[in-house]
């Protein structure tokens, strides 16, 4: 079965991104597919490669990047939410005249249409948020 997952809270403040990760991992380990995870609202902050959590803590971004690499999960960051919150990929940073970008490996920035498409193309959709 194909699961679409929405993450709509930021890492380290709210448990949502951890719960979503645990759900995605369990789904993949039990023979299901997770073709896409969509990060919305403050959830977009999961995708910055510049966060440096203490070494004895989980690194939420790296967990997601590794999962995406192993299982070909499409990690999509909503562009409208990302721009409000300062999440930029190289192309967007150049286009907006910004001096840096911060998107982590395995994540990509795209539009809200990707969320709707995920709802259409998956069998079940589940949202982790507040």
């Amino acid at each position: 079965m194909k699961f679409g997952i929405v993450v709509s809270e930021g890492p380290y403040t709210h448990q949502a991104s951890d719960s979503a990760y645990n759900f995605a991992k369990a789904a993949l380990e039990n023979g299901h597919e997770v073709p896409r995870v969509f990060f919305y609202h403050d959830g977009v902050n999961v995708g910055t490669r510049l966060s440096i959590p203490p070494q004895d803590e989980r690194n939420i971004q790296k967990q997601w990047s590794a999962l995406a690499g192993e299982h070909n999960v499409d990690l999509v960051i909503c562009i409208a939410a990302a721009q409000r919150r300062g999440l930029l990929d190289e192309k967007e940073a150049t286009r907006q005249g910004k001096d840096a970008n911060n998107i982590a490996e395995g994540f990509r920035i795209s539009g809200l249409g990707q969320l709707i498409e995920m709802g259409i193309q998956t069998d079940r959709l589940i949202t982790f948020g507040d």
Binding site: F23, K25, N30, R124, I126, T127
Partner: peptide
Amino acid sequence: DYAGFVELAASHDRT
């Protein structure tokens, strides 16, 4: 557990 959570989501028509 999380595997049970996944199976509940799979066995129902929607969440």
